[in-house]
């Protein structure tokens, strides 16, 4: 297993990096943690002439809160997210998901930007970020644009990211009190696992502590891209939280799933598991929104 030959560029800032991408064209690939890219290079699945390393781009680092929004730099590692104190309360589901990504070694290398831009249907971080209404910050030669994450994914491995664009990070509106979420994944083993199904759920309770003001349920590995379940959200919003409601919303989420049969599992099983995981995730999200710890696992 050898890496093919390629030129390696280390631009000093974002404009230079985007300029370089524009100049190099489709023969260039961006590399951050490399947990996906290096594997694909070694297997000969891609043969870029140049790699553009992001390690010098300070614009892509940091977790900053301001004006009710949290910015997470694209180079932030999964390990950092998993341990971050900035991801408490209603943001905890993102840390939960990051902590289940790959192995400790992979988490040290893998970045949030990479996990989003590779656009794998079963990726760990899209469901919680979709639930948190995250927006992607995309920098290009003409400046920066903001895209809702729900509009970011186009298919397996495909996104709206232009060939000369680099993801700078994501921004998440900070949930207020009464916000809670959970992330659950189903795989064969307890670690280093590609999800058969993963589900994130987020609930924002109204001040009465019972009515659901806002809700999102996101699903992974059951469609060409990670998706939000509109039916689940519709079933939840404006309703009073409770087990029956969650079961109905989970049922609705299963209807939004469009899984396929593959060697990891059947479509029917995946759809069933969306129902189970969505219900459990909603129960846990509710527990958290109400300030209760734990819940059923």
């Amino acid at each position: 297993m050898l890496l093919p030959k390629f030129d390696y560029h280390q631009p000093r800032d974002l404009p230079a990096a985007c300029g370089l991408l524009a100049e190099l064209g489709p023969e260039a690939r961006v590399i951050a943690g490399g947990t996906d890219l290096l594997v694909n290079l070694k297997h000969g699945r891609i043969r870029p002439k140049a790699l553009v390393g992001l390690e010098r781009l300070e614009e892509l680092t940091g977790l900053d809160s301001g004006r009710g929004r949290l910015f997470i730099g694209a180079r932030t590692s999964a390990a950092h997210l998993a341990a971050s104190r900035s991801l408490g309360g209603g943001l905890r589901l993102l840390a939960q998901a990051a902590g289940q990504l790959g192995s400790p070694q992979v988490r040290n290398r893998a970045t949030i930007g990479g996990n989003l831009c590779t656009a794998r249907p079963a990726a760990e971080l899209p469901p919680p970020l979709l639930c948190l209404d995250a927006r992607a910050l995309l920098a290009g030669p003409q400046g920066q644009r903001e895209v809702a994450l729900s509009a970011f994914f186009k298919g397996p491995g495909l996104t709206v990211l232009g060939p000369d664009e680099i993801m700078r990070g994501v921004v998440i509106p900070r949930p207020g009190l009464g916000g809670g979420g959970a992330y659950l994944k189903l795989g064969l083993r307890r670690a280093m696992e590609i999800s058969l199904v993963n589900v994130a759920a987020f609930l924002q309770l109204a001040p009465d502590g019972r009515t659901i003001a806002q809700a999102r349920v996101a699903l992974g590995a059951v469609a060409p891209t990670p998706i939000l379940s509109p039916r689940a959200a519709q079933a939840l919003i404006g309703q009073r939280a409770g087990d029956k409601l969650f079961a109905a919303a989970a049922e609705a989420a299963a209807r939004d799933a469009r899984p396929i049969d593959d060697h990891r599992g059947s479509a029917a099983y995946r759809r069933d598991m969306v129902r189970v995981l969505a219900r459990r995730a909603l129960e846990q999200a509710w527990d958290q929104a109400r300030g209760r710890r734990g819940g059923k696992s």
């Binding site: 192995s103 064969l188 083993r189 307890r190 670690a191 280093m192 696992e193 590609i194």
Partner: peptide, 11 residues
């Protein structure tokens, strides 16, 4: 060994 699953220490 990513897709052929042997137990991890967690299992």
């Amino acid at each position: 060994l990513g897709e052929y699953h042997i137990p991890t220490i967690m299992d």
